[in-house]
Write a protein that binds this DNA or RNA. Structure first.
Lengths: 222, 222
DNA sequence: GAAGTCAGTGAACAGTCGTACTCTCAAAGC
DNA sequence: GCTTTGAGAGTACGACTGTTCACTGACTTC
């Protein structure tokens, strides 16, 4: 009945106490399998061409079972957005909390993005691809998440002494600029592949340096 | 035989001299009709989900006729890229050639982009959507065109007195930065719609101002 | 331990898809 | 004026799509 489930997982589930519920755990597992399969299939196509049956076939489940978890492929896309970007919200602080030298922090930011992209390329590819993709609901979900990131960045930057005298709107502009360049860098890394990675990293660093320079002189004159 | 062709065009074609060839003109007209129909259909979906039959149906042509013009939807996408961005190469100069006050030039640049996007939204939407889309050939075609734009911008900027002492690599970085933000602004304008246009324009101006500020202080210290 | 819930099955539905044929007939070339 | 060319028509093919329905049977609940 659960063809993608091996005995190991079955034992693991049996080990759980009665509080969780075997049934619910199974359902979540199938749901996750659908998400994983979809993410893999989306490596070479975009969401608007992803077939419902295509996903269920990859998981080993009947097409009908899909509807137990999502209304359609668009809903699956929204879920993928939350899975990908929802877990990244803490990372912003980790990058920017480092109050060391500006140049060093800049390099470390780019390195951290590079590492995340190379570790889970499919997730970032999905975001880059569907950010301007054909499914409106997914675009909206990504935009909402990225707006949240921009706000976080703006808050962190606003607390720094370099941002004295900045109004809220300019800080949001700067935060959005950083976030957009994160996504742009991630996409460029995916497109370049391992051999072109260093070149992308170098350019990304220079871009960030230029933006940081602009930030330092933002209030030079009225 | 050419159901989308009205008599007016027929007369127009008859008026052409024998050099052109009625037949070739008709073929080009069908080809253009396919491109236009595809562009319209791509407003609510991405290229990887665009059906060959879907396009021919919109034009009023047999699916078989499609192959007389393109190998498949991917080739049509590449043609769309060249149609959209190929005609824009002169615009770069028109934007940046204005050697007036920096602030004024900046505003005029954003206004020019805004005007172009509102005048032909489908073209820009297509580029923004397929820049990171699911069809590799189209991604490559867009990337090549944008690289060309970045090079043009870099050349124009390099000729200005503000760029004294800049090496070629930094100029390319700056050119790419400008181009990427053009695309980003275009996409934001499309997403915001007419009511949100002014807000997008304001943020885009600030971003450009910050980048220009960073440019002015790029060589301040080694 | 009996009754109920519900994740997943299997069959069937009416469409759509890309592509391969042959055929037509107006324009092009001599 | 004849032949050649080629853009598009028409038909057919097998494969795939999203969605529906009644169903099974392992888990849950009382």
């Amino acid at each position: 009945m659960y063809p993608f489930l091996d005995s190991e997982n079955g034992c693991l589930l049996n080990g759980m106490s009665h509080t969780t519920g075997i049934r619910q755990a199974q359902k979540l597992k199938t749901r996750q399998a659908l998400l994983d399969a979809a993410l893999e299939l989306l490596e070479h196509q975009s969401l608007s061409s992803l077939g419902l049956r295509e996903v269920t076939r990859a998981v080993g489940v009947t097409p009908t079972a899909f509807y137990r978890h999502f209304d359609g492929t668009a809903a699956l896309g929204v879920a993928l957005v939350e899975e990908t970007l929802g877990s990244l919200h803490g990372m912003i602080g980790a990058i920017l909390a480092d109050t060391g030298d500006s140049e060093e922090r800049l390099d470390r930011s780019v390195d951290l993005i590079t590492r995340h992209v190379t570790e889970q390329p499919a997730h970032f590819r999905f975001i880059a691809r569907e950010q301007h993709g054909g499914v409106g609901q997914v675009r909206a979900a990504i935009a909402a998440q990225l707006r949240g990131f921009a706000l976080e960045v703006a808050q962190v930057l606003g607390a720094e002494p370099e941002s004295a005298g900045w109004d809220r709107e300019d800080l949001l502009m700067l935060g959005g600029l950083y976030v957009d360049h994160m996504v742009l860098t991630a996409s460029a890394l995916l497109e370049a592949g391992p051999e072109g990675e260093q070149e992308v990293v170098r350019v990304a660093r220079r871009r960030l340096r230029l933006v940081t320079l602009g930030r330092a002189h933002w209030l030079d004159r009225p």
